[in-house]
Deep mutational scan, measured.
Amino acid sequence: MAEQVALSRTQVCGILREELFQGDAFHQSDTHIFIIMGASGDLAKKKIYPTIWWLFRDGLLPENTFIVGYARSRLTVADIRKQSEPFFKATPEEKLKLEDFFARNSYVAGQYDDAASYQRLNSHMNALHLGSQANRLFYLALPPTVYEAVTKNIHESCMSQIGWNRIIVEKPFGRDLQSSDRLSNHISSLFREDQIYRIDHYLGKEMVQNLMVLRFANRIFGPIWNRDNIACVILTFKEPFGTEGRGGYFDEFGIIRDVMQNHLLQMLCLVAMEKPASTNSDDVRDEKVKVLKCISEVQANNVVLGQYVGNPDGEGEATKGYLDDPTVPRGSTTATFAAVVLYVENERWDGVPFILRCGKALNERKAEVRLQFHDVAGDIFHQQCKRNELVIRVQPNEAVYTKMMTKKPGMFFNPEESELDLTYGNRYKNVKLPDAYERLILDVFCGSQMHFVRSDELREAWRIFTPLLHQIELEKPKPIPYIYGSRGPTEADELMKRVGFQYEGTYKWVNP
């Protein structure tokens, strides 16, 4: 592979701008107003304001973009700056750019259920340069409990009458099928589907988006991507930290609602779906819905739930269990780990287990898709061969690698495990991989909904998990304890083995 010439960040961002501006969906010269509902909250200060700053800094926003914060707290732009700027990672050389960014910011205080507050917000936006005809993007960085009041008031008082209007809704989209349907029906009564952007930030990850290209742009994968060759698929999300004093919020939802029903299920769809007619948003989402419709409700015998306990040999936070978090209700049975087996009941995947695993306070930070292939028929190497695996590593250190057998150097035919490896950090030294939120917010500006969740996708996802969630809430089974920093409950490994996964433990990928 030829040595790549190092590029400056300015040059890299210039390439990104060229890609972005050559499309006809990006209205570079139009006025846009980006409204952050819930501007005083954690999500706004840690993710949304920093993301908008990065896009502005790199010249990736339309030229005439204004940012308006809205929340109940009586704040000023200076207050917003004070709480969000520490997350910007701005350099001293960017000081003038930073001043320009905050000059485009404003803030309006108001209630979430008060019509007069929204009329005041609308008047404020109209007073901005060309504000009355601007395109408006409303980001709901809010708890779902206020979605209905907020969307109703936005629709009645704050819509642009000339430009387009788009609304970005953060997960969780309800707690179960019934609450999700209620919320979807409410929002759909106010906005068209092409105006609604239900954001799952995992769909903005580079390697998640790469799944489609790997599958449908490489001839070698087509013939082997089926039940005849693939023994099982494992989708993993692991965090090495616990709730760390923020367990009160987590306890309301648990690990299945927080990660599995959305992030992991979306990745499953991209692995299992048929080739779409095109890369058009609805063509892709149509195929994802077909996959979900082929999955039956989760069966309790295919589920393992766990909850982390303190590690007596650990240090600091590792010595504390979930129930030691003062914000967690006493005696909570909320799971911090889950392993679930699903089956896609169609011709391509009949009988292939899709194993979804996620948890907190585990032994490493990792998100990946792992396809394990069947054993080689007619073994001539005296059971020395391990199964081939194709691994798409989402985070950290984005990579695609194939675990395969090669001859060990020497005189004899002794096979050993090795890999074919594409590590993004080595291959793409001159490429700026956008943060997931950067990519998705740019998608909203461009009107691309491919990486957002459609209402029928959402409904099918909740259909699969709601009976299990209701059973857990009714019966309150005690989750299996696992030690902070471990791989999780051993019962999860036993479940995976029972459905056909072979864990060798003899080879570990190392970032080159």
Rank of each mutant, 00 (worst) to 15 (best):
residue 107 Y to D: 02
residue 176 D to Q: 04
residue 249 Y to C: 02
residue 63 E to F: 12
residue 121 L to I: 10
residue 97 K to H: 07
residue 241 F to I: 12
residue 240 P to F: 10
residue 246 R to Y: 02
residue 12 V to S: 15
residue 62 P to W: 08
residue 237 F to P: 03
residue 226 N to H: 10
residue 169 V to K: 02
residue 29 S to D: 13
residue 217 A to H: 01
residue 165 N to D: 08
residue 135 N to P: 08
residue 195 Q to A: 10
residue 198 R to N: 00
residue 220 I to Q: 03
residue 12 V to C: 12
residue 145 T to K: 05
residue 175 R to V: 06
residue 131 G to K: 11
residue 166 R to W: 00
residue 50 P to S: 09
residue 99 E to W: 04
residue 162 I to S: 12
residue 116 A to N: 14
residue 82 K to A: 13
residue 77 V to N: 14
residue 88 F to E: 03
residue 90 A to Y: 09
residue 193 E to R: 00
residue 26 F to G: 13
residue 125 M to E: 00
residue 211 L to Q: 07
residue 183 L to Q: 01
residue 199 I to P: 00
residue 93 E to N: 15
residue 67 I to Y: 08
residue 77 V to W: 09
residue 40 S to K: 04
residue 226 N to E: 07
residue 175 R to T: 06
residue 100 D to S: 15
residue 110 G to A: 08
residue 21 F to D: 12
residue 206 E to I: 07
residue 101 F to K: 00
residue 197 Y to D: 00
residue 224 I to R: 05
residue 181 D to L: 09
residue 116 A to S: 11
residue 129 H to P: 15
residue 206 E to V: 07
residue 124 H to R: 12
residue 163 G to T: 04
residue 58 D to Q: 09
residue 50 P to H: 04
residue 191 F to D: 03
residue 81 R to P: 04
residue 65 T to A: 10
residue 143 P to C: 06
residue 254 G to P: 03
residue 9 R to D: 15
residue 77 V to P: 10
residue 256 I to A: 06
residue 246 R to I: 01
residue 145 T to V: 07
residue 37 M to L: 10
residue 113 D to C: 13
residue 193 E to N: 01
residue 70 Y to M: 13
residue 203 L to D: 02
residue 181 D to E: 13
residue 194 D to T: 12
residue 104 R to L: 11
residue 200 D to Q: 05
residue 156 E to D: 15
residue 230 I to P: 03
residue 211 L to H: 04
residue 78 A to W: 12
residue 42 D to E: 00
residue 229 N to F: 05
residue 84 S to L: 11
residue 132 S to N: 14
residue 193 E to T: 03
residue 206 E to Q: 09
residue 160 S to C: 13
residue 184 S to R: 02
residue 109 A to G: 14
residue 219 R to D: 01
residue 48 I to Y: 05
residue 57 R to E: 03
residue 80 I to Y: 06
residue 212 M to Y: 04
residue 166 R to M: 04
residue 177 L to D: 09
residue 207 M to I: 07
residue 102 F to H: 07
residue 175 R to W: 04
residue 97 K to N: 06
residue 233 V to Y: 02
residue 147 Y to C: 01
residue 152 K to F: 13
residue 144 P to I: 03
residue 176 D to T: 04
residue 199 I to C: 05
residue 79 D to A: 10
residue 229 N to D: 10
residue 186 H to G: 09
residue 125 M to D: 00
residue 163 G to K: 08
residue 131 G to S: 15
residue 251 D to S: 07
residue 228 D to P: 06
residue 31 T to Y: 12
residue 151 T to M: 07
residue 174 G to S: 03
residue 63 E to A: 09
residue 11 Q to D: 15
residue 241 F to A: 05
residue 167 I to S: 04
residue 212 M to T: 08
residue 129 H to G: 11
residue 131 G to D: 13
residue 218 N to G: 01
residue 89 K to P: 05
residue 83 Q to L: 10
residue 15 I to A: 06
residue 209 Q to T: 10
residue 100 D to A: 14
residue 34 F to N: 00
residue 213 V to S: 11
residue 218 N to I: 00
residue 103 A to G: 12
residue 245 G to I: 01
residue 21 F to A: 13
residue 182 R to C: 06
residue 20 L to W: 06
residue 251 D to E: 06
residue 108 V to W: 07
residue 248 G to R: 06
residue 73 S to L: 04
residue 133 Q to L: 10
residue 235 L to P: 02
residue 119 Q to P: 09
residue 10 T to G: 08
residue 93 E to L: 09
residue 116 A to Q: 14
residue 114 D to Q: 12
residue 119 Q to S: 14
residue 11 Q to F: 11
residue 55 L to R: 04
residue 96 L to T: 14
residue 234 I to E: 15
residue 94 E to F: 05
residue 60 L to N: 07
residue 246 R to H: 02
residue 108 V to L: 08
residue 236 T to R: 01
residue 125 M to G: 05
residue 248 G to L: 05
residue 60 L to S: 04
residue 195 Q to Y: 04
residue 111 Q to G: 10
residue 228 D to V: 08
residue 254 G to R: 01
residue 54 W to D: 07
residue 32 H to C: 08
residue 80 I to D: 00
residue 46 K to W: 03
residue 141 A to D: 03
residue 107 Y to Q: 03
residue 210 N to T: 09
residue 149 A to R: 15
residue 167 I to N: 01
residue 222 G to M: 12
residue 135 N to Y: 06
residue 194 D to V: 09
residue 194 D to N: 14
residue 205 K to L: 02
residue 246 R to M: 02
residue 161 Q to H: 14
residue 91 T to P: 10
residue 34 F to T: 07
residue 94 E to S: 07
residue 142 L to R: 03
residue 53 W to L: 00
residue 177 L to E: 08
residue 156 E to H: 14
residue 150 V to M: 06
residue 155 H to M: 09
residue 12 V to T: 15
residue 205 K to C: 02
residue 106 S to G: 07
residue 57 R to W: 02
residue 40 S to F: 03
residue 40 S to Q: 04
residue 42 D to A: 01
residue 26 F to H: 14
residue 86 P to T: 09
residue 250 F to P: 05
residue 114 D to K: 14
residue 171 K to W: 04
residue 192 R to K: 14
residue 79 D to F: 06
residue 78 A to H: 08
residue 76 T to M: 11
residue 202 Y to S: 01
residue 163 G to W: 04
residue 199 I to Y: 05
residue 10 T to C: 10
residue 99 E to R: 12
residue 71 A to T: 03
residue 17 R to T: 07
residue 10 T to S: 15
residue 68 V to Y: 05
residue 146 V to I: 14
residue 231 A to E: 11
residue 159 M to R: 13
residue 21 F to E: 10
residue 242 G to T: 05
residue 90 A to E: 06
residue 55 L to V: 02
residue 76 T to W: 07
residue 74 R to D: 14
residue 90 A to P: 09
residue 215 R to S: 01
residue 183 L to H: 02
residue 243 T to D: 00
residue 134 A to V: 09
residue 73 S to I: 02
residue 127 A to P: 06
residue 126 N to E: 04
residue 115 A to R: 12
residue 166 R to S: 05
residue 226 N to K: 06
residue 16 L to G: 08
residue 233 V to F: 04
residue 219 R to F: 08
residue 200 D to K: 03
residue 116 A to F: 11
residue 78 A to K: 13
residue 57 R to Q: 05
residue 19 E to Q: 12
residue 20 L to Q: 10
residue 7 L to F: 09
residue 66 F to H: 14
residue 47 K to D: 01
residue 88 F to Y: 08
residue 15 I to C: 07
residue 148 E to V: 11
residue 115 A to V: 15
residue 245 G to L: 11
residue 253 F to G: 02
residue 137 L to H: 02
residue 217 A to F: 03
residue 49 Y to N: 02
residue 33 I to W: 09
residue 121 L to R: 01
residue 68 V to I: 14
residue 182 R to W: 10
residue 228 D to H: 11
residue 61 L to I: 12
residue 69 G to E: 01
residue 12 V to Q: 13
residue 144 P to Y: 00
residue 186 H to W: 09
residue 184 S to E: 01
residue 28 Q to C: 14
